[in-house]
Design a protein around this nucleic acid. Structure first.
Length: 433
RNA sequence: UCCGGAGUAGCUCAAUGGUAGAGCGGGUGGCUGUUAACCACUAGGUUGGGGGUUCAAGUCCCUCCUCCGGAGCCA
């Protein structure tokens, strides 16, 4: 019979048969006349056993020459064996080295953060990074499916923009044929006109913030998904967030069990987030709750990382903090009809200290009020004429939110730092590789 | 930007102001079932850069650089 070329994921369907697998040497061990080559192919790991008395001497020599991360084509018989990680191993009959790698920089033991990040392009090959980025990929697909199945239209927002969205201090500036351009820090302003065109829209892409933040929650380039919905009011927005969060968390738990297990993630800490409702906490109540627990905060303060962690720890699932003071929130947020000093804004705080993963609000739909807010915030009116047009031609109530993919991924994976939740992290001190 | 911490072998780290070491990785050899295998031997250093104190500096002082953690800001 033909020897099929298969992936390691397909092994169980080929027990007892001869197959060929292409991959990279993850590790190897030798013991006299036996060599164990641990092969990885992106779909799994496979122990390949080379027994000198049973193979051609050329095959043995090829096995001996293999180094860590050499690329190779290995042929053999799939056998079930309890001693093999994964339950199956390959009894090798042939080895075709594709490229024998020189000494590999990443060892089997610990490395420092800087070293690993300098070798991010190789670090991706490790089991842990593999698991994290598969969770990220599943999360992203879950998000797209959530919106697509509900007839949202994907609107790709521009990366190069002429003006600040929420202020100028944290923007990356670049030359644009003699003019100034900025890298987008949110697609939201471009989504609002699109919501008038399509009703329900979302964007999903990279955003850029030139903040000199050096914490485990910050990147200068991060991915954000932002839905914007026409006719949606604040309470409906909270419902949407709940529906969204429970669905995507369920999806990841359902499909990434193996990866989360590899990451030693305590699933029981995520399961409550698959169930509605999420607690909704008024900003004023949040301030009171903080004071009770020895974290005094003035009414009007925004919360720092510690405060967020305290608030999140009050519940077993993400908590929605609502109706922040208007002056600490963005200029476009709709004031609360009952108290105009407050904005119809919501932050979703993830459990376990992962911080704010979602920020959202109802948007101002009054042309006059929006005009005033732009002036109050010292923003250049002429740059926002197109944005004001949304309120000039058929204004409508609408709401939306943004979720940071890396923070959400970090939370789901239970990893310490957001930089591991993106393939090639960009931070204040890192632009390589 | 501010506060704190750290820079020693390819990597992770030791080293009272007094001869710079170990583990891993590399090389050589041994072993028929290893699970980050093990055992033996072996090569490998301008102690981040510059200046200073001292008989003597990896160690103390000054300065610069790089990185890490946190604050502010934010997803």
């Amino acid at each position: 019979m033909e020897r099929p070329v298969i992936t390691i994921a397909e092994l169980p369907d080929h027990e007892g048969r001869d197959v060929t697998i292409r991959g990279w040497v993850y590790n190897w061990r030798k013991k006299g006349k036996i060599r164990f080559v641990i092969l990885r192919d992106g779909f799994g790991y496979l122990q390949c056993v080379v027994f000198r008395p049973e193979v051609d001497e050329t095959v043995w020599e090829a096995a001996v020459a293999l180094t860590q991360e050499s690329s190779v084509e290995i042929t053999g018989t799939v056998v079930a064996d309890e001693r093999a990680p994964g339950g199956f191993e390959l009894k090798v009959s042939g080895i075709v080295p594709v490229q024998v790698a020189p000494e590999y920089p990443l060892g089997k033991k610990e490395h420092g953060v800087d070293f690993l990040l300098n070798h991010r392009h190789l670090w991706l090959r490790s089991r842990r990074q593999h698991a994290i980025l598969r969770v990220r990929a599943e999360l992203e697909q879950a998000i797209r499916d959530f919106f697509h199945s509900r007839r949202y239209t994907l609107i790709d927002s521009p990366i190069l923009t002429p003006a600040a969205c929420e202020g100028t201090s944290t923007l990356f500036e670049t030359d644009y044929f003699g003019d100034r351009a900025y890298l987008s820090q949110s697609g939201q302003l471009y989504l609002e006109p699109a919501a008038a065109a399509f009703g329900k829209v979302y964007c999903f892409g990279p955003t850029f913030r030139a903040e000199k933040s050096k914490t485990r929650r910050h990147l200068t380039e991060f991915w954000m998904v932002e839905p914007e919905v026409a006719w949606l009011r604040f309470d409906g927005l909270l419902d949407l967030i709940e529906e969204f969060m429970t669905e995507i968390v369920s999806r990841v738990l359902d499909r990434c069990a193996e990866d989360l297990d590899r990451l030693e993630r305590d699933i029981s800490l995520l399961e409550p987030a698959t169930r509605r409702p999420y607690p909704r906490m008024d900003y004023a109540d949040a301030i009171a709750a903080l004071a009770e627990r020895g974290h005094p905060a003035e009414f009007g303060d925004d919360f720092g990382g510690d405060e967020e962690t305290v608030l999140a720890s009050l519940h077993d699932r993400p908590v929605m903090v609502t109706r922040y003071p208007a002056h600490i929130k963005a200029f476009y947020m709709q004031p609360d009809a009952d108290d105009p000093t407050r904005a119809l804004a919501v932050d979703v705080l993830a459990p376990e200290g992962y911080g704010e993963i979602i920020g959202g609000s109802e948007r101002i739909d009054s042309h006059e009020l929006l005009e005033r807010r732009i002036a109050e915030h010292g923003l250049p009116r002429e740059a926002f004429e197109w944005y004001l047009d949304v309120r000039r031609y058929g204004s409508f109530p609408h709401s939306g939110f943004g979720m940071g993919i890396e923070r959400c991924t970090a939370w789901l994976c239970g990893i310490h730092h957001a930089r591991e939740a993106i393939p090639y992290p960009r931070t204040i001190n890192r632009l390589y590789p």
